[in-house]
Design a protein around this nucleic acid. Structure first.
Lengths: 159, 159
DNA sequence: GAATGCATACTCGGATACGCCGTGTCCGAGTAATTAAGG
DNA sequence: CCTTAATTACTCGGACACGGCGTATCCGAGTATGCATTC
């Protein structure tokens, strides 16, 4: 899995603690974890295309959440970065086997494919069950200073 | 995910229908689905290293299952090909963040990492719950001719 | 006829290239804030 | 003092290189087989 998923999840989580109507530039989000600015920007663009973030250019511009944190699941973020295709891609090798027919969709019929799909669905179900709001509250409960620290860090000038 | 997983699963399933003590060469296994012989051989070697198959060189040699099909889970095959690392690899970017400590293992502490790990465990649990024997019986129930066809195909000369 | 040694053909196994996607970087188009000028 | 228009600086967005891993292939080491030879 791409490394951008980790960056995107942490960045979205940080944006959760922003006061409404405020935006954070890619440079500030990158400085938070000492990440390469331009590459993080690329990932954030994917989140914008997925409708998770909105971007505003110009001074005082940047990124903010497009939806309330309760409406953004972890799966949404993962799919925005990694794409919607499942990890196991059935190439339908049964077609080339004995008795293989070209008019059959072996992605549905092949029992191996079905087994892998079941696992993939379980994975997606687990990720879809957690939202950014869940993560936020969990972090706040364990590290109560995080919201204030994050806001302060975003307000401070770029060293 | 690597394409070799599909090849390995189907090949192991085919080996399931072999009579005990018999081996099939990589060339025959590859011809079954018109796969590149040398590359499939590479995947089969990984299965041997994982203890799923045993290989015997020389004439009448080849590959066979090292364990009964009930003792080989789909997860075993996937891990043999893909490796044991989980899909989401936590790079511990929290270390570079504000208040990050170098002596903390953020793979255990980070809540994002935990969420991804939960999903990964669900995926693995689903794959570990199905064995080659389960797949074999499911195929036999839906396509009763498969065992005989497979054995015949393996016995016939390489066209 | 049986045993033995040898030549043979077949098998796996690892070492060796090619190509694609993830990683990383850069510069330009566009916009909002700022400032200065004018009424 | 208020309005307005040009300037400016800052932002995102897409286009451009580099490297690592999956993909694919080949050839050599090793072995069980089959055969020829000998007793």
């Amino acid at each position: 899995m791409s490394e951008g998923v980790e960056w995107a999840l942490h960045s979205c989580l940080n944006l959760t603690w922003l006061e409404p109507g405020q935006a954070v530039s890619a440079a500030r989000l990158a400085a938070f974890y000492r990440l390469p600015t331009a590459y993080l920007n690329k990932q954030l663009q994917a989140l914008v295309r997925a409708g998770i973030l909105t971007s505003t250019p110009g001074p005082r511009g940047g990124f903010r959440l497009a939806r309330p944190p309760e409406a953004v699941s972890v799966l949404d973020v993962v799919v925005a970065i990694e794409g919607a295709e499942e990890a196991f891609r059935c190439e339908q090798i049964l077609r080339a086997g004995p008795g293989g027919r070209a008019d059959v969709d072996y992605r549905q019929v092949c029992l191996v494919s079905q087994a892998m799909r079941r696992a993939d669905l379980a994975w997606r179900r687990e990720l879809a069950g957690q939202t950014l709001a869940d993560l936020r509250t969990a972090v706040e409960q364990r590290y109560p200073d995080t919201p204030a620290n994050t806001r302060e860090r975003f307000a401070a000038p770029l060293s």
